[in-house]
Design a binder for these strands. Sequence first.
DNA 1: GCCAACGTTGGC
DNA 2: GCCAACGTTGGC
Length: 158
Amino acid sequence: MTTEPRYWLTKSEPSDYSIDEMQRDRVEIWDGVRNYQARNFLREMRCGDLAFFYHSNVKPPAIVGLMRVAEENIVDPTQFDKADKHYDPKATPEKPRWQTVRFEFAEKFAQPLTLDRLKEMFAPEELLVVKRGNRLSVMPVSAEAAAKILQEVRGEAG
DNA sequence: GCCAACGTTGGC
DNA sequence: GCCAACGTTGGC
């Protein structure tokens, strides 16, 4: 039995890591997430799930592309790295605290789908990222919302 | 640059 | 285990 791929949205400040870098790298471990709610969503991700790539802290904030989960339930290596910004002294290889996934690049959208446009398309309950004050960097997206986003990005013909 | 929202920390 | 203080995120 197979399950339908689920949809997610992951934020990144393009000054840290952008969709263009993702396109260049093709595959990347989504490391450095240090929020338990976000981590729990990362733990739920399965191979084949799709994640919208959202550029935050830029003008305009927007969904800019799509990634696919290539490897699930990875131990985030940066938690053990003292030199890393995201080093966690409470994490040990025996008892890691932070898991994530490896994403592969899927698509860069021809046109970014801006937060303003997303607010026109969705109520806050329909798409978490349009909710005011939302700081979560990894969140689920319903199949309905994902379909609407993809239709918007690809045009009525697609 | 401001500040609302909210997660985390630590004193008690 | 409460909650004030603090830090961070991220839109505006």
